[in-house]
Design a protein around this nucleic acid. Structure first.
Ligand SMILES: [Mn+2]
Ligand SMILES: [Mn+2]
Ligand SMILES: [Mn+2]
Ligand SMILES: [Mn+2]
Lengths: 220, 220
DNA sequence: ATAATTTTTTAGGTTAGTCTAAATTTTTAT
DNA sequence: ATAAAAATTTAGACTAACCTAAAAAATTAT
């Protein structure tokens, strides 16, 4: 049974939204920028194809088959992003739309060959982990910088990639994956922060921006 | 105005078939494996979009705009084929179907970056010339090995890539682009040939196979 | 120059994927 | 426990891209 590009994008969206429990029609409607009626139509088709379990008015969950497909697509998307940045010298804010197309390209063994060619990378340019050939996705235990409560040293491990202009702003601040952030002061009033990056001069950061940065706590 | 993947494939087919004069509905129908009625439908749409000039019962020709699009697609197809062979180690008989998908991927500057990454190759893995960034396609003056009338030395410059099993057969004979073929004898009865490749022991080749090999005559 | 054949177009239908507007169900507030 | 609001589904329409069968035009053969 062949699964269309559009069906594939629905599956990816359900995967992304299903953090806890089932995904609502409205959530999908917003995420895919489609009307709710279109979502309902498609959910019926995906259920027919056994990719999701769906009951009227109850939202939707991925089946095992659907989850496997989602992981394949995420693997493809992230590996192509690595290719675009590492080999074609794109910036991290330019690759998403292209990877969104490349992830749908089919070919025997294509993605595993690409993986090897890239040196079996573990993370994509935004710090997201790449499922391995067996589709195992290793989740990291990260915190949003904006939610952190005590000063200290943290490593930038992942950033929110939904908004290119957010990524461009991080570039302007010269914040990259792997950088060490020292959190000096926390303004409780509005959640804004005073930080320094890789020991350079300290800067101010709004809570909104800080919430798009995921960090790992360093011991010292 | 956006041009769909299917419209793009029609444009490529018209380009390939329009060697001399206009292309007939039947020719396109056979090339695309679609019914003639479907071709007629699409030709109207392509004419609306000014990609072709089309008059009922008169066949179709590419407009300047259509020709430019065709060359872009051919450039993309051939560069992706180079990528698959050179970087991902595919064999020349495995790349066509994947490139057929990759050629439709859109991205600002994507194909020129790929071109640079590959070292601005002049030919694809089958010996077909690649249009340059300005879309100039340099045609070579080649002959089909099966049509040659006198013995002599020839260089394999291009091969017919439509049939993967033909390419596999060439691999079995260890014939590659750039090889030197010495044509020893021509059997006029059935057009078959007696040749040797790169000075190794001579082999027999049918006229059918020889016609899939395009060669350049060497002076001596 | 007619008739037969081939090519091409038209007419009408199907499926995938979307939409708007209306109806229905579920959830929330009084 | 009702009523109001929100979420969801249904109904009906549209476009892209294909199909089959029939009609029309062009070409070829007698
Ligand atoms: Mn996609
Ligand atoms: Mn990413
Ligand atoms: Mn194609
Ligand atoms: Mn080729």
């Amino acid at each position: 049974m062949q699964i269309s590009k559009n069906e594939q994008d629905y599956i990816k969206s359900i995967f992304k939204l299903q953090a806890d429990g089932s995904v609502s029609t409205t959530a999908l409607s917003e995420h895919l920028h489609l009307k709710a009626a279109s979502i309902t139509d498609m959910l019926k088709k995906l259920a027919d194809k056994k990719l999701v379990s769906y009951k009227k008015y109850q939202g939707v969950t991925l089946s095992t088959k659907g989850e496997k497909l989602a992981l394949e697509l995420i693997r493809k998307h992230r590996l192509w992003e690595v290719f675009l940045v590492e080999k074609l010298n794109y910036k991290w804010d330019e690759v998403h739309a292209i990877a969104e197309q490349l992830e749908h390209v089919e070919g025997l063994d294509l993605i595993n060959r690409l993986d090897k060619f890239l040196g079996l990378p573990k993370f994509d340019p935004h710090g997201d982990p790449i499922p391995n050939e067996k589709l195992v996705l290793t989740k990291q235990n990260l915190s949003q910088l904006g939610k952190i409560t005590k000063p200290g040293k943290y490593q930038v491990s992942m950033v929110n990639q939904d908004n290119p202009s957010f990524l461009q702003y991080l570039t302007k601040l010269s914040i990259k994956i792997g950088d060490i952030i020292k959190l000096h002061e926390l303004i409780t009033f509005d959640g804004s922060l005073n930080i320094s990056i890789n020991n350079s001069t300290s800067i101010f950061m709004s809570n909104t921006v800080a919430n798009g940065i995921y960090v790992y706590k360093l011991n010292n």
